[in-house]
Design a binder for these strands. Sequence first.
DNA 1: ACCACATCCTGTTAGC
DNA 2: TGCTAACAGGATGTGG
Length: 297
Amino acid sequence: MPELPEVETIRQYLGEVLPGRRIEAVVHLDQRLVKMGAETGGGLVERLTGMGVGAIGRRGKFLWLENAAPGGGAFVIHLGMSGRLVLEPPARPRRPHTHLVLRVGPEELRLSDPRRFGRIGWLPDPRDLDRRLGVEPLGSSFTAAYLAAAWSGRRAPVKALLLDQRVVAGIGNIYADEALYRARIHPRTPAGLLSPPRLEALVRAVRKVLRDGVRHRGTSFSDYVDALGEPGHHLPYLSVYGKKDGRCRRCRRALVREVIQGRGSWFCPRCQVLAVHADARPSPTSAERVDEPRATV
DNA sequence: ACCACATCCTGTTAGC
DNA sequence: TGCTAACAGGATGTGG
């Protein structure tokens, strides 16, 4: 599933090669993928045809090609969970479920998405996305204090709120589980009960796993490839996500998977504790509920 | 406001 | 072995 590191990897490559080119033709467009902006009923082809490509932007998991013309708007793409955006020669066979093909210079920019959870559209100003997206987790606004304020009084599991793009934009299921493992926080912990030190650990963990993901050009768990069609290299670095029959690399306990608010959640039931604030601790008798994890092994 | 769950969709996997 | 049913999840919408 393309999350921030995967989308950023795609952005970086497209940003190297696309600016200055022109969209010469919309070779193919499946209107069903147009779910954003005013052109859901039609008109995107006219917007795109002849567009000079400016900067390539990203916000959370959204990616866009800016129109180089002044005040020209932007073509926005979200890859959903099975979307691929690849720049390749026109002669190369198209993958099944290719819903968009743009001729840009000698190549085609192709979007394929079997599950069609992805979405595309035209936005007059990509900053409109700010209205529905929270802070960038790799930006300076993502702090423990910010999370404390955003999650104050919230009883929902921290796992669920990490996925809420209106608070923090770009974290998906894989990196959420990896960050919670790294911060030693049980995914069911009510978000509003996390102590400041735990929030600080979580912020650092989120930054770490996302940075590593970007450094490794993304995690290719199922569908993801970059804009060159190459898989990312981060999969071997995952600690918990998708580790069927896996063991915690810290304490050797068997990892577990539970469904939390409809999402599969992988974690170590020993290292990841219900890390609540000291004054919210239920009782000293429940050994699992301590503010800091016990020493392992 | 908040929380949990249904919805979309199809390739893959689990189970009979 | 071969079929069918359940599962996976990002964002959004609905109902409590």
